[in-house]
Structures are given as structure tokens and as C-alpha cells.
Design a protein around this nucleic acid. Structure first.
Length: 123
DNA sequence: CTGATGACTATAG
DNA sequence: CCTATAGCCATCA
């Protein structure tokens, strides 16, 4: 598993997080097939080039808090982007019971990598 | 190889 | 809720 492959998987998963929902770093890692890879998710996001369109702001800590320190521009940016999608952010806190992304049971890694339209079964 | 770092996480007080 | 602690793992000096 190369670094590029890890980043690709992580990004693919993050792109699947629907607007108005959030996922934890650990959740993204697990779905991407990288158990205990929460820190690698953070690393992947840090590596992304400027101007990318990956919805990085939909990734938060497992406790439902924004990972950036409250007094940073990144914190405010993430908070505002989430609010723009309808997510209620109180301080640094988000109610995970309400906004946590819950992928369907049919959500396999292949689904996130290739998408449903590429399923061999369908055609 | 060794030690330090970090957009993390689980657990205990 | 907050602080402290231990575990985690790729990356970097």
C-alpha cells in the first residue's frame, strides 16, 4: 500500500460524505480500509494541493469537535462551511448523533472507489 | 535506525 | 465538561 494509494482511498471516501453530514477521521480511515488510520486521514488532508475541491470540512474528531484550535482561521472556515450546509455548530461542537454520516450496509470499499454505476452485476 | 510530531482516539479521574 | 495518559502510525529531521 503506497502513500498515493492511501491518499486516493481517503479522498474517495471523503468525497462520498453528503452535504449536511460529517464523519470522523477514524470513520473515514476505517471505510477506506485503513484501521487505526485516523492520523493518516489528517495527514492526507494536509497534503492536498491548494484549490482542491475535497470536502475536508466534513471531517471532524470522533467526539464531534472541530480538530483545529478555536482561535485559528481554519477553525472558523470549517465551522462556517458546515453551518452553510445546515450543520449546527456550537462552539467547536457538533451533535454526532444527528449529523454523523451513516453509510448504507451495502457500502463496500469498492462502492466508494468505483461507484454504484460500475457494478458488474448491473450490466 | 532513533526520536519528535501531529487536522486522532479511547479511557480514566 | 475538562485534563491527563497511553496507544496509534506515517512522516520527517
Amino acid at each position: 500500500m503506497t502513500t498515493a494509494e492511501r491518499v486516493a482511498r481517503i479522498v474517495a471516501v471523503i468525497r462520498r460524505i453528503p452535504p449536511g453530514s460529517v464523519a470522523s477521521y477514524g470513520q473515514v480511515a476505517e471505510i477506506a480500509g485503513i484501521p487505526r488510520g485516523a492520523r493518516q486521514v489528517a495527514y492526507a488532508l494536509r497534503q492536498l494541493p491548494d484549490g482542491h475541491d475535497v470536502p475536508w470540512f466534513r471531517v471532524v474528531q470522533s467526539a464531534g469537535t472541530i480538530a483545529f484550535p478555536p482561535d485559528t482561521p481554519s477553525f472558523a472556515d470549517q465551522r462556517d462551511r458546515l453551518r452553510r450546509e445546515g450543520v449546527v455548530v456550537t462552539g467547536a461542537r457538533i451533535d454526532m448523533r444527528r449529523y454523523r454520516w451513516q453509510p448504507g450496509c451495502d457500502a463496500d470499499l469498492d462502492y466508494y472507489l468505483w461507484g454504484p454505476s460500475d457494478a458488474p452485476d448491473t450490466g
